[in-house]
Simulated assay, not measured.
Amino acid sequence: MFKTTVTPRFGDIDGLKHANNIAIAIWFEQARNPVFRLFTPDLDLSYEKWKLIMARTEYNYVGEMFYGSDVDIITYISKIGNSSFTVTQEAWQNDKIGAIGRSTIVHYDFINKKSVPVPDDIRKELEEHLQEESDSCK
């Protein structure tokens, strides 16, 4: 499990004084960086080095989040397949869950344009962060 703390910016807040749904997607993207580093430690986005492609994302907005208090993003792996895995994320503010996100990420060879199996050494690292989704996510 990884934990990233985000401080909502003024521009992250919408007219109803809630965290904007796009801001939450950006916070989740930022909090996936530790997972990305398992595959590309320096996060080099060059065509030859980057090894992941996003296949699916979904977000459930289950509570309110506001300006003025930090948000903790909890990130973990909830499923590992042959060439893909699911990252589940939870956004918590003031001990209340505000959003849940799931991303299906594929280990991908951009040069040959095809998915490839997750290497055993990286699979072991992913397994260290493997956990069932919490009850708040179901």
Rank of each mutant, 00 (worst) to 15 (best):
N94F: 13
G63E: 08
I97N: 07
Y67V: 11
K113R: 14
L45W: 07
Q89P: 12
V116L: 15
S83I: 01
K114N: 15
P41H: 06
L43H: 03
I77N: 14
E64L: 03
F85Y: 13
I105Y: 11
I74W: 06
S83A: 14
P34M: 05
R37A: 14
N94P: 10
I105W: 11
I77H: 15
F66R: 00
T40F: 03
V71Y: 06
A91F: 05
L38R: 00
I74M: 05
S78I: 14
N82W: 03
T86L: 07
G98L: 02
T104Y: 01
K114A: 10
S103P: 05
Y108L: 13
Y59I: 01
H107A: 11
T57Y: 08
S84M: 08
I97W: 04
I80L: 06
K114E: 15
T75W: 07
S46H: 03
E58V: 05
R37W: 12
L52Y: 00
R102E: 09
D70H: 04
G98K: 09
G81T: 12
I111Y: 12
E64S: 03
Y76K: 11
N94H: 11
I80Y: 11
Y76P: 05
G68L: 00
M54K: 06
S115W: 03
S103D: 04
Y47N: 04
E90G: 08
L52G: 00
L38V: 10
F66Y: 02
E48G: 10
I73H: 00
S69N: 13
Y108C: 08
K79F: 13
S84I: 08
S69I: 14
V62N: 03
Y67F: 14
S115R: 08
V116A: 15
Y108R: 05
S83E: 11
V62W: 02
I105F: 11
K113I: 10
G101K: 07
K114G: 14
F39I: 02
D44S: 05
E64Q: 02
V71P: 10
F39S: 03
M65V: 09
G98A: 01
T40R: 04
F66H: 01
A99P: 04
T104Q: 02
V87P: 15
G101V: 01
T57I: 08
V62L: 02
K96C: 09
S84Y: 05
D95W: 01
R56E: 14
T57Q: 09
N82H: 09
V106C: 11
S46C: 06
V35G: 13
I80A: 13
I111D: 13
A55V: 09
G81S: 13
G63W: 07
V106W: 07
D72S: 14
V71W: 04
I105K: 04
L43N: 05
L45K: 10
F36R: 02
A99E: 10
G101F: 01
E64H: 01
S83P: 08
N82F: 09
R56P: 04
H107F: 02
S78G: 08
Y108H: 03
K79E: 08
L45H: 05
L52R: 00
T86Q: 10
D44M: 03
N60R: 09
